[in-house]
Design a protein around this nucleic acid. Structure first.
Length: 593
RNA sequence: GGGGGUGUAGCUCAGUUGGUUUAGAGCGCCUGCCUGUCACGCAGGAAGUCGCGAGUUCGAGUCUCGUCACUCCCGCCA
């Protein structure tokens, strides 16, 4: 017999009765009846009840065993009597009557209970992550993560993508987030950087002729954390394809996502490929931002023209000063009481807005303070807005274009939630396409790349030379699910002359470009295929399927909010010797105060 | 760097307008009893610098100020 186990803890059934077996696992829970003791023995696979009584020489040893100790028992599979069946356990028809009992590794009193789903503070959970990971929810989430990754591999390999690793120690990139830097021993004063994404490498792989590449790619960015953003590192499904249009990039990913979401959820309705495509400009107009939650049926409308020059002075005057007015419909709200509108108005004020006015239509008749100050002709125009009928209400937000659209996106979600319009069991995907190539930095008043500088501008060199830069679109796109931005991607710019011009418009001199992106730029001079790709965030996909609002719930060993690993004690101070080796000197930080 | 929320037993939390003795509950832990439980039960016990510091007050877990920690958000995230 094997020294540790003949079966795992989720294997034994009635058909195994009378078999001599050996099991190993953790003491999940003990029920001590004095002369009779039940132990729920747990391993990765499940739980089996083992029973031992006073007649056994090991009884007192078993009684003394603490929760989460690791034990090995040998004994006989015994059917349970009718009254003592446990229908909640797959192994609930049997138990194992203990003969041999060995404590492999005792456990001290626990800082957190493995056998409960009680909430613990995150510092406790992260400090004792190995215990936290034993708990049912974390086991489930990590297994889900594994399934997502394995379905990604299956789906990509099936489409003849080649999985290729790219360097972890590479060069710092000038654009984007802060890099994590690694000092070089061999080259004093010089640094490697961890990649923020394998962007340049995947383009070089296309130029190298690998045609279709993918990788479960670790990405490192030194950013501050959010609930949906782990500081330090995260993973992307990074992929890139040669000789493709935007449509080809989409149709490579769509079946993979559809497959993952379909196989790993129950009773959810999932967008079927091809996913909806929404141009960026239209998206911002209709939803307020570029990551729409399409489960929400409400659509924003610009009603500035209707209020312009009207007798509703508050809006009319602000419009003259350059403000716009956005309408958000609230369908079937003729019976909503005054408090419904007051509540939302107060919410808007709490969020720092002037307020959120409204018109309530009851049988085509407009009511409320705004309606009282507007002529009938204008009021009737509201009935023609998308998503509005004679029993709707309309909320209005007035302000400067960019800021008020951003808030309208929040209000759209808030109103839909209040009216319970968002279905919980849906995953709705869309592509946001035609991103602008450039945007104006309001602080410096300079033109900068709005997204990825390597994207191909629509219209190519001609557009860059002849058109107003802020009007140029790029073959640049995002994929969004339920209001969560999963990734962005682009058809790349593979022509050096277009790239030089594109960077020139963003204020980069040729020399600068050659210094920062020399490797890639040089490669374009030796036969570069047209190519494009995308890189959806794996952590966010797992979050969506797991229904977890916090990214740290689906990462085995995440940093805390301050980018520390409390279990491994990272980051940590380094010996003087090793600093010297790296030609580094730590400044006295107290000097700063 | 900025804003909001939280901080009471090992853990999760309650604690009224500032006033009732020794600041409570559940889980965990320790002791005893218990041979059919499955969140076993019963009886008892240990366990607290109410984050820290100052202030107001006859009196502070409770109010004020400062500070620290945790958490969510803004900035940041080509």
């Amino acid at each position: 017999m094997h020294i540790f186990r003949t079966h795992n803890c989720n294997e034994l059934r009635l058909k195994d009765k009378s078999k001599p077996v050996k099991l190993s696992g953790w003491v999940h829970r003990k029920r001590d009846h004095g002369n009779l003791l039940f132990i729920d023995l747990r391993d990765h696979y499940g739980i089996t009840q083992v029973v031992i009584d006073k007649s056994n020489k090991n009884f007192s040893l078993a009684e003394k065993t603490t929760s989460e100790s690791v034990i090995t028992i040998a004994g006989k599979v015994t059917p349970r009597s009718e009254e003592s069946l446990n229908k909640n356990l797959p192994t609930g028809e049997i138990e194992v009557a203990v003969e041999e009992y060995i404590i492999e590794s005792g456990a001290k009193p626990l800082p957190l209970e493995v056998n409960s789903d009680k909430d613990y503070g995150e510092d406790t959970r992260l400090k004792f992550r190995f215990l936290d990971l034993r708990r049912a929810k974390m086991q489930k989430n990590i297994l889900l993560r594994n399934k997502v990754i394995s379905l990604i591999r299956d789906g990509m390999i099936k489409q003849s993508f080649t999985e290729i690793q790219t360097p972890i120690l590479t060069a710092s990139s000038p654009e984007g987030a802060r890099d994590y830097l690694v000092p070089s021993r061999v080259h004093p004063g010089k640094f490697y950087a961890l990649p923020q994404a394998p962007q340049q490498f995947k383009q070089l792989l296309m130029i190298a002729g690998f045609d279709k590449y993918f990788q479960i790619a670790p990405c490192f960015r030194d950013e501050d954390s959010r609930a949906d953003r782990s500081p330090g590192e995260f993973y992307q499904l990074d992929y890139e394809m040669s000789f493709v249009t935007q449509e080809d990039v989409f149709s490579a990913l769509e079946p993979v996502l559809f497959d993952i979401f379909t196989k790993l959820t129950k009773n959810f309705s999932i967008s079927k490929p091809p996913f909806k495509k929404i141009p960026f400009d239209e998206c911002v107009k209709k939803y307020g931002n570029d990551k729409p939650d399409l489960r929400n049926p409400l659509i924003l409308s610009d009603v500035t023209d209707i209020f312009k020059g009207s007798s509703f002075k508050l809006f009319a005057e602000n419009i003259n000063k350059g403000s716009i007015v956005i309408a958000i419909p609230a369908p079937n709200s003729k019976d909503q009481p005054r408090t419904f509108f007051d509540k939302l108005n107060n919410w808007a004020k709490d969020e720092g807005q002037g307020g959120m006015g409204y018109i309530q239509f009851i049988k085509n008749e407009g009511k409320g303070p705004i309606a009282n100050n507007l002529d009938k002709e204008r009021i009737n125009k509201f009935l023609k807005i998308e998503g509005v009928d004679g029993n709707s209400s309309i909320f209005f937000l007035c302000g400067k274009s960019d800021e008020i659209r951003e808030f309208a996106a929040l209000a759209r979600t808030k109103i839909a939630n209040e009216l319970k319009l968002i279905k919980e069991n849906e995953f709705k995907f869309c592509w946001v396409v035609d991103y602008p190539m450039y945007q104006l930095n309001p602080e410096t008043n300079k033109i900068e790349f709005s997204h990825n500088p390597f994207s191909m501008p629509q219209g190519g060199l001609k557009a860059l030379e002849n058109e107003e830069p802020l009007k140029i679109k790029a073959y640049q796109y995002d994929i969004v699910c339920n209001g969560v931005e999963l990734s962005s991607g682009a058809i790349r710019n593979h022509k050096p002359e277009i790239m030089l011009k594109a960077f020139e418009l963003a204020g980069y001199a040729r020399k600068e470009l050659e210094k920062e992106f020399g490797g890639l730029l040089k490669a374009f001079d030796y036969g570069a295929p047209p190519h494009g790709g995308c890189a959806p965030g794996i952590d966010r996909i797992v979050m969506l399927i797991a229904g977890e609002p916090n990214i740290r719930e689906i990462i085995p060993f995440p940093f805390n909010q301050k980018a520390e690993d409390l279990m491994m004690n990272a980051p940590a101070e380094i010996d003087e010797e090793r600093l010297k080796e790296l030609s580094l000197k730590v400044l006295d930080l107290k000097m700063k105060d």
